[in-house]
Design a protein around this nucleic acid. Sequence first.
RNA 1: GUGCCUAUGGUGUAAUGGUUAACACAGCGGUUUGUGGUACCGCUAAUGAGGGUUCAAUUCCCUCUAGGCACCCCA
Length: 443
Amino acid sequence: MIMNLNLKEITNRMQKFKSVKGFKDILPEDQFYWDFVRNKFISIVKSYGFERIDLPILENSGLFVKSVGSGTDMVDKEMFSFETLGKKKVSLRPEGTAGTVRSYIEHGMLNRRKPVKLFYLGPMFRYDRPQAGRYRQFHQFGLEIFGESSPVIDAQLIFLCKQLFSEIGIETDIHINSIGCQDCRKEYIGQLKNYLKKNRKNLCPDCQSRYLKNTLRVLDCKEKGCQEIVSEAPQIIDYLCDDCNKHFVKVLEYLGDAETAYQLNPLIVRGLDYYNRTVFEIFPKGNEKRQSALGAGGRYDDLVRNLGGSQEEETPAIGVALGMKRIINILKKKEDSGIITSRTSDIFVAQLGERARKKVFSLFERLRRLGFDVAEDISKTSLKQQLEEANNLKVKFALIIGQKEILDKTILIRDMESGSQEIIPEDKVEKVLIKRLKSIKKV
RNA sequence: GUGCCUAUGGUGUAAUGGUUAACACAGCGGUUUGUGGUACCGCUAAUGAGGGUUCAAUUCCCUCUAGGCACCCCA
């Protein structure tokens, strides 16, 4: 019989079968954190009127090319794409908005009462090089609102994000900007190019190419030289058209009234093509490094039409995506997160001998159906091992059934804290347990 | 894709160019088999892979692999 395995030997042997780079298991001991965050988010978001939508992980590659945009790194270099046996080009979704919009159009949701508020959660995939807070499969919680252009919606969504985090004990900084509509952005990019042209020689090599391909991204370059140049650059806010400007001012106004602290950050431009007007990013308080962003979002008023939705009717929209793992990492670091991180129960059912063991089958089920939080370790034979497990589960009472109890039709009830025991008739178990658990909870 | 760093039981750490690689936690078992938490005892279990230098390598060097970090980009 194999007593103990050498894990190294095993992993060497199974080298080829180890988990794929950047793809992680979520182990049982971490599930408490995931459940905690998911449950909180879902319940809050539901009370804000969002409905859940579950979308396929695989979409036609074209969907992302058209929405996120060719020319973005996400689409050009980071998608897990392949051909199906039917020669269709498909990709693992690198983000959630595109699929949600696709579904919105495909199922005629434009006929629903507006605004249509949806939330999703699930894995996304990007072929990035893994590092702190970044994985190739990562989990997002996303919110999308369709059919409402009012700036109050922008403000509400941002406000809601702030609430989500504060409810799980994380304080955040919101960075916000407006990148205008297509028209004013075009105007601005022209101006920016003009300005950068003068300093073009001093830009880093990356920015040289950004200048041509994706001028806006020069704004959030990390190079000192570029930052200096950028600090003097024209800001998009000064080039917003009337409508965009009004919209943005209103958003800030609503946020101000809701006492949601925010920071104007003219350097936020977002890397995806579909954004317009309001864009924002959420950071843990005091930590504004790019890779620690907990979430980001913005308006995408033209995306529905661009993906083939109603051409006559406007479908303005806005959304946000939150990175689950980064959130959980923060919670795990916090000593006092208020999350119970191990399995617990109220009652443990222990047995000694074959007849008692058979009895426990039905007793356990009887108590469980009555709503008790009950546990067992039915494969064990020694009482010692069973009480040990009862202790690990921090149960209040252990029920012990052995030969004697079977014959007498009784049950031994042990108070795990005090160690005192009492023999009670089997048919009174429920009553006694209810009474005792109640009295404990009162105290 | 570019640069840098790391690799010792399941986990966290220690030590060494030379006898049996140490410690803690976890796991398993025991302290007379119908009693957990505390205590005591015992057991299991490691130098990522390959090559080189050397009488001798876990230690020094190279390659590979894996992991991490920063950049890029992003949640």
